[in-house]
């Protein structure tokens, strides 16, 4: 499998994106912005469609659209402070409707669009790999340098602000990095499943991890293994990579949560048994 050039690129791109997307997912979940990745993927699709219509590189257009969408969501979020999820809904509707109209205008691009929608390992070109690497470098620098302010902001933006954190700028930067990572993930998992790569590893890691750093590292590990397994299964079974990766990550989540519940149940059983069993001292007394 790995002697194919496209599979090497797919594993390389999948690995980079899995690491970035999973770390991003932890922050998105804790900031209650789980749907943001989904929304930005739809906006990015509108950019891809616009790029195709205007004869501009669709990948770059998708990147630019995702970044603009991320800035827009931040602006709308500030306008609707009490209903921050409204910003996601408004921009998602805008992105999807523009994408649909532009796609209907450009019928020659149907095949390529389906690879954007559902993901395709063949779709990963060398240029896209370079974009992904660039997004990964920006993301790594962002999360490494700002992990502490982001931790404070995940709890409460107002107290973070009074602690001297420039919340508005970091929030804007966070949205832009999210846009970049979402746009970079699209060739692998596709528009419709991009949030699976971001949300599912994070959803499992925050349930099993005991500290913030371990949650991020666990999410990255789960994302990496899930993507590798999904790509291998996709190659062997000839199934769409996006759907296969999402399904593998979903299985990881379900089995991980079940195992955790089982361990908790066994632990509580042991504890209650130990309580019920009389100690040597109690036996001697009786």
């Amino acid at each position: 499998m790995l002697h194919y050039d496209f599979m090497q690129r797919a594993f390389c791109a999948g690995g980079i994106i899995a690491l970035m997307a999973s770390a991003l997912g932890v922050y998105l979940l804790l900031r209650r912005q789980a749907l943001m990745a989904d929304m930005l993927s739809h906006v990015s699709l509108a950019g891809v469609a616009a790029g195709a219509c205007l004869g501009f590189n669709p990948t770059i257009a998708g990147f630019i659209a995702a970044v603009i969408g991320a800035i827009a969501v931040e602006v709308v979020r500030r306008a609707y402070k009490t209903y921050s999820e409204l910003s996601v809904a408004i921009i998602m509707v805008g992105g999807l409707s523009v994408a649909m109209i532009l796609m209907s205008l450009n019928k020659t691009m149907n095949k390529s669009f389906s690879s954007y929608l559902f993901g395709s390992v063949v779709a990963v070109t060398r240029t896209e790999l370079i974009y992904m690497s660039a997004a990964a470098i920006v993301g790594t620098v962002f999360f490494l340098f700002l992990r502490r302010p982001l931790y404070l902001m995940a709890f409460d933006e107002e107290s973070a602000k009074t602690s001297g954190v420039p919340v508005q700028w970091i929030s804007l930067g966070f949205s832009i990095v999210t846009g970049m990572i979402v746009a970079a993930s699209m060739p692998i998992v596709g528009v419709l499943l991009v949030s699976s790569l971001i949300i599912l590893p994070a959803a499992l890691s925050i349930r099993i991890a005991t500290s913030f750093t371990s949650a991020i590292l666990a999410a990255m590990g789960i994302g990496l293994i899930g993507t590798g397994t999904g790509l291998t299964a996709s190659y062997e079974l000839n199934t769409p990579p996006g759907g296969t990766i999402a399904l593998v990550l979903l299985l990881f989540l379900v089995s991980g949560l079940s195992l955790k519940k089982m361990f908790v149940w066994i632990g509580s059983k042991r504890a209650s048994k130990a309580k019920a069993k009389p100690t040597n001292m109690e036996v001697a007394n009786t």
Partner: peptide, 19 residues
Amino acid sequence: FPSRVAEFVRSGLYGHRNW
């Protein structure tokens, strides 16, 4: 929220002076 109490209390020191 995946955080321990000690980590949470120490986060008060992150503020503007210790990123």
